[in-house]
C-alpha cells in the first residue's frame, strides 16, 4: 500500500501528517516514509534517523569529441531542452538544461557524443522509531527534482505487506506528479482558507488526471471559512481527518516532536485514517474488477 501526502498549497501540514501516519502504522507492517520534497526535505528533523546509507543521483550529460564532430548541428536540432548549441565551429553544451534523455548521443551521425555522469543530488536512508526513512537532497542550484525523486522511490526496499508513505512537495508541477505517480491513494492536506481551497482544487485536478483516489485532511480547523468543506461535499471528496488549530500542536512541532509522540491519543485517529483509506482503495479495486 502506497499513500502519498500532497497538498497543493505549501505549509498546510503534509509532513506533520506523513510523519505521524508513518509512526502510527509501524505495528501494521513494515513502514517506509519517503520524503520526496527533495528541494527541502524535513521529515528527518522530526524522525531523527541514523543515516545507514547514501547514494549519489547522477544525470548522464553529453560530452562532444571535437576530433570526430563535423559541426552538422544534428544534436542541437534533436535536443528538446536546448542543452546543446552548434555555432559554426563551436559546440556549446549546457549541462544544467540537460534532461539526460540521450537523444544527442544516439542520433549523432559521427558517434562523436558520449555521456558522462553529472551528480545532481543524493539519496539517504536510515531507520528511526521502527520506520525506514528515505529522503533525497537536490544539489543547491540544480533545477530538476524528478530524477532525485525517482531514486527515492526506488529505495523503498522490497518488503511484502509493507506500507509506504510518500511526503510530496507542495504545488502541482513535475516534482509533485513524479512523487504521487504510482501510489494507491493520495491524502490532500489543506487548511480552511481561500488560499487552501484554491490550491486544493488544483491538487484534486492533478490527482484525478493521474487516476489516483484522494481524500482530504483538514488542518488548522477553526480558522477561515467553510469553503473547503463545501467544495469537498460538492466534489464528493471525503474529509478523512480534521486537525484543529491548537497551540500545543504548534508548540510540539516547533520543537521537532511529531503529533503522535507529543499527544499519543492521536495515534488511534491516524490508525482509523489508515483503515478508511484501505476501505476506499479496496472498494475502488472491487468496482474496477466488476
Amino acid at each position: 500500500m502506497i499513500i502519498s501526502v500532497a497538498s497543493g498549497k505549501g505549509g498546510t501540514g503534509k509532513t506533520l501528517v506523513a510523519t505521524s501516519l508513518a509512526l502510527s502504522l509501524k505495528d501494521a507492517g513494515p513502514v517506509a516514509l519517503l520524503d520526496c520534497d527533495v528541494e527541502e526535505p524535513n521529515a528527518h528533523i522530526l524522525l531523527k534517523p541514523e543515516i545507514a546509507g547514501r547514494e549519489p543521483v547522477n544525470m548522464p550529460v553529453p560530452v562532444v569529441d571535437l576530433d570526430r564532430c563535423t559541426y552538422c548541428g544534428e544534436c542541437a536540432r534533436v535536443c528538446a531542452y536546448n542543452a546543446i548549441a552548434v555555432l559554426g565551429k563551436h559546440v556549446l553544451t549546457f549541462p544544467q538544461l540537460c534532461h539526460g534523455c540521450g537523444a544527442c548521443s544516439y542520433l549523432c551521425p559521427e558517434k562523436a557524443i558520449s555521456e558522462e555522469p553529472r551528480q545532481t543530488g543524493i539519496v539517504e536512508w536510515g531507520d528511526a522509531h521502527g520506520v525506514r526513512l528515505v529522503h533525497g537532497i537536490l544539489t543547491v542550484g540544480e533545477a530538476m527534482a524528478p530524477p532525485v525523486i525517482r531514486k527515492v522511490k526506488e529505495r523503498t526496499g522490497d518488503r511484502p505487506g509493507g506500507i509506504v508513505i510518500r511526503d510530496v512537495p507542495p504545488g502541482t508541477s513535475c516534482p509533485v506528479v513524479e512523487a504521487v505517480q504510482g501510489s494507491d491513494f493520495c491524502l490532500l492536506v489543506t487548511e480552511p482558507t481561500p488560499f487552501g481551497l484554491n490550491d486544493l482544487a488544483l491538487a484534486v485536478e492533478t490527482v484525478r488526471e493521474l487516476r489516483i483516489p484522494c481524500g482530504v485532511v483538514l488542518n488548522r480547523a477553526g480558522i477561515g471559512d467553510a469553503g473547503v468543506e463545501e467544495y469537498c461535499l460538492q466534489e464528493r471528496i471525503p474529509v478523512l481527518l480534521t486537525i484543529p488549530l491548537h497551540m500545543e500542536i504548534a508548540r510540539l512541532y516547533s520543537r521537532g516532536i511529531t503529533l503522535v509522540e507529543g499527544m499519543p491519543y492521536w495515534k488511534e485517529r491516524f490508525q482509523r485514517l489508515f483503515d478508511r483509506i484501505k476501505e476506499i482503495v479496496h472498494e475502488g479495486s472491487r468496482s474496477l474488477k466488476r
Binding site: 536546448n82 542543452a83 548549441a85 552548434v86 549546457f94 533545477a143
Partner: peptide, 18 residues
C-alpha cells in the same frame, strides 16, 4: 520561436540570432 520554450530559451534564441 523560443519565447515559450520549456527551457533553454536563451540558448535557442541565441542560435536563431547567430
Amino acid at each position: 520561436a523560443a519565447a515559450a520554450a520549456g527551457g533553454g530559451a536563451g540558448v535557442s534564441a541565441g542560435q536563431a540570432i547567430a
